[in-house]
Amino acid sequence: MNASLPIALVDDLDRRLLFQLEPGLPLAPRPYAEIGNAIGVDESEVIDRLGRLIQAGVIRRFGVVVRHHEVGYGANAMVVWDVPDAVMADAVGVLTANSGVTLCYQRPRRLPDWPYNLFAMIHGTSEETVRAQIADLRAQVPLSGLVHDVLFSRRRFKQTGACYRPRLSLPEKREVA
């Protein structure tokens, strides 16, 4: 699927709606009415717009956002491959068909430091189960023949929702230890 959508698909009111939603839908009986009050539209407009943004793929998921670590999925690895263009589609096919893969992205290489261009996230209840899933993926063509690396997460310093709201001022310089 294409990473970019026509700009016209998301208007100013959509943006205000999405910014207002960033902290989460209010846990109150009429949450869409509360969101609407905050941005000056009525409840039905909020619901219609959310439906349209979901339909258009701007919102790729609308619902309960679970924190994996806290619900028992304490292990996660980012697995990266150096995939030639000629086999990219096949490699993506293997990854997206695997239920253990939660996210799969193509990103640029940064040579010589970083030769990898395909990224997959794998979550599991333990490092052992995640390693088994990775071994399973690596047994499949074309991944079996490609250079890869595995980056397990260790400390989690921050995990929050995305914040696209424009800032009133630019970040200031701070003293660094």
């Binding site: 970019s4 989460g24 846990l27 949450p31 998921r61 696209y164």
Partner: peptide, 29 residues
């Protein structure tokens, strides 16, 4: 339902009920 969701949020089992926005549609990332 509302109470249970509040409890799950306090326990940090959920971060929120909300929208996961496709990268690149309303800003840069």
């Amino acid at each position: 339902v509302i109470d249970a969701l509040e409890t799950l949020k306090k326990q940090r089992a959920i971060s929120r009920v909300g929208a996961v926005v496709k990268p690149g549609t309303i800003g840069a990332s």
